[in-house]
């Protein structure tokens, strides 16, 4: 399966990276990681990319790293459609001060607009 994983630099996005790698190793998926700087994270896109590359370097999963240039949600949906990905994976669902789960704007956009199945890791 061709999997498109969006990583924006939040803790949950790195958790999604770990889980997607583990799943890819079992299922033989090919992984494309699209990196961007989430407004909810305190990291630049370069920092996110570096961490993603370091994590992937420790695995033998066939993978590609690329950039999301414009609006992350919209670009992820466009890439998935245009390049015939089978699935989009995202980590989202941070908790509010009193514990309510809240999806980020990228995850909301992708869930509502994607034409491929979406896996939400939280």
């Amino acid at each position: 399966m061709q999997v498109l994983l969006g990583v924006g630099g939040t803790p949950l996005s790195y958790q999604a990276l770990d889980e997607t790698i583990a799943r890819a190793q079992e299922a033989g998926d090919e992984l494309t990681v699209a990196v961007f700087a989430s407004g909810a994270a305190d990291a630049s896109r370069d920092e996110v990319e570096q961490r993603v590359r370091e994590t992937l370097a420790e695995t033998d999963v066939p993978s590609t790293v690329r950039h999301v240039e414009g609006d992350p949600g919209s670009d992820l949906v466009t890439i998935a459609n245009r390049e015939s990905f089978d699935r989009i994976v995202l980590g989202s669902g941070e908790r509010s001060p009193l514990g309510k789960i809240q999806l980020g704007s990228v995850a909301e956009f992708v869930l509502l607009n994607a034409q491929t199945p979406v896996t939400l890791v939280r």
């Binding site: 908790r95 509010s96 009193l98 514990g99 309510k100 789960i101 809240q102």
Partner: peptide, 20 residues
Amino acid sequence: RAQGIPPVQAEAIEQWLDTI
């Protein structure tokens, strides 16, 4: 429940109550 709270398991409820 709304947006994941309150938790369901007794232990998770206790932890959540500790916080709030």
